[in-house]
C-alpha cells in the first residue's frame, strides 16, 4: 500500500524536482548569460543595425539598406588589407608552431630547471600586446633602439640599418616580435596536450620497436588533435584580428603595405568617421572568421572510432 501510494505521486514530484533543478541550473548560468547578452549579443546586434546605415561619427545617420555592403565589394583597399592579413596569419601561425612545439617537447618532461624554463618562455605572454609593441618599437628604432645600434657598435654593419623602412625587414621584425610574445602561450597549451598522453602507450610502442619519429607521428600527433585544434584556432583568430603591433610599431607602413583588416576598419571608423561602414566591414570580417573556425574544427574533428 505504502509502496503503491508512494509510487503513484512519484512521477509528478520527480518532474517537479527536475524542473526546479533546471530553474536552479538556469539561475547559475544567468550571470554568464547576462554577460554574453550585454557584452556580446547586444553590441553585435547594434553593429549589424549600424552597418545598414550611413552613420557618421557626428551628425545624423540615415538608413541605406545594403549600401555599405555594396561599397565593400568595390573597396579594393579593404580586400588588399584582407589579403595581407591572410598572408600574415599563415606566416605567423607557422612561425609560432615551429617555435612553440619544440619548446613544448623541451619543457614537458621534468628535468633540472624545468620550471625556470617554463616561466622564462611563458613570461612574454603576460605582457599586453600594446606594451609589447611599444617595447619593440624602441628595440627596433634605428637611432636610439637596440638591434641596429648594437650591430653598428659591434662593427657588424657599416652604417645603421633602419629595420622598419622597407617591407621585408619590417614584416619579419613584427613576426619575430609576435613569436616572442605568443609562442610561450602556445607552448603551455601544447605541453598540456603532451602531458595528457598516457605514458604506457609510448612505452608499449617502444617495446614494439617504434623509433622516436614513428612514435611522434603515430601516437603524439593523433592524440594531440584537440589540443592542436585549440592552439590553431586561437592563433588564427588572434592573427586575423591583428592590429596593435602594426598600428604602434609600423603605422601600417612602410607605405601602407602592412595595413591589416582590423586596421582598415579602425581607419574607416575613426579617421574617416564612417562608423556605419566600419560596422559593415566588421560584420564581413566576423563572417570570415566564423567560417574559418568552422573549417578548422572540421579538419581537426575527432576521427571515427577514436575516443
Amino acid at each position: 500500500m505504502t509502496v503503491i501510494t508512494a509510487a503513484t505521486p512519484a512521477p509528478p514530484r520527480a518532474r517537479r524536482v527536475a524542473s526546479r533543478q533546471q530553474w536552479i541550473g538556469l539561475l547559475y548560468v544567468a550571470p554568464a548569460v547576462a554577460l554574453v547578452v550585454v557584452f556580446f549579443l547586444i553590441p553585435l546586434g547594434m553593429t549589424a543595425w549600424m552597418s545598414l546605415h550611413n552613420w557618421p561619427l557626428m551628425g545624423e545617420h540615415s538608413f541605406i539598406g545594403l549600401g555599405n555592403y555594396v561599397a565593400i565589394l568595390r573597396d579594393t583597399r579593404f580586400w588588399n588589407a584582407l589579403r595581407f592579413t591572410a598572408f600574415y596569419t599563415v606566416i605567423v601561425t607557422i612561425a609560432i608552431f615551429v617555435v612553440a612545439f619544440p619548446l613544448a617537447l623541451f619543457v614537458e618532461r621534468p628535468r633540472p630547471l624545468t620550471n625556470l624554463y617554463r616561466t622564462m618562455f611563458f613570461m612574454p605572454a603576460v605582457v599586453g600586446f600594446a606594451s609589447a609593441s611599444l617595447l619593440w618599437s624602441w628595440l627596433l628604432n634605428v637611432d636610439s633602439g637596440l638591434f641596429s645600434p648594437a650591430a653598428y657598435d659591434l662593427g657588424l654593419i657599416d652604417r645603421k640599418f633602419n629595420l622598419l623602412a622597407t617591407f621585408q625587414p619590417a614584416f619579419w621584425s613584427i613576426i619575430a616580435m609576435v613569436v616572442w610574445k605568443v609562442a610561450g602561450f602556445t607552448m603551455i597549451i601544447l605541453m598540456a596536450g603532451l602531458q595528457s598522453i598516457p605514458q604506457d602507450l609510448q612505452e608499449a610502442a617502444v617495446i614494439d620497436g617504434a623509433g622516436p619519429f614513428a612514435r611522434f607521428r603515430a601516437i603524439t600527433l593523433p592524440l594531440m588533435r584537440r589540443t592542436l585544434a585549440l592552439a590553431l584556432i586561437l592563433s588564427v583568430a588572434g592573427s586575423i584580428l591583428a592590429f596593435d603591433q602594426f598600428y604602434i610599431i609600423l603605422r601600417g607602413g612602410p607605405r601602407n603595405q602592412t595595413l591589416t583588416a582590423v586596421y582598415w576598419i579602425f581607419n574607416q571608423s575613426f579617421v574617416s568617421f564612417k562608423l556605419g561602414y566600419g560596422a559593415a566591414l566588421s560584420m564581413v570580417l566576423l563572417v570570415i572568421l566564423v567560417a574559418l573556425s568552422l573549417v578548422q574544427l572540421w579538419l581537426l574533428r575527432k576521427p571515427e572510432g577514436l575516443d
Binding site: 628604432n141 634605428v142 652604417r159 640599418f161 633602419n162 623602412a165 603605422r251 612602410p254
Partner: peptide, 9 residues
C-alpha cells in the same frame, strides 16, 4: 639626415 627620419611618425 639621421636614418630614423624615414620611419618617424
Amino acid at each position: 639626415v639621421p636614418a630614423g627620419a624615414q620611419t618617424d611618425t
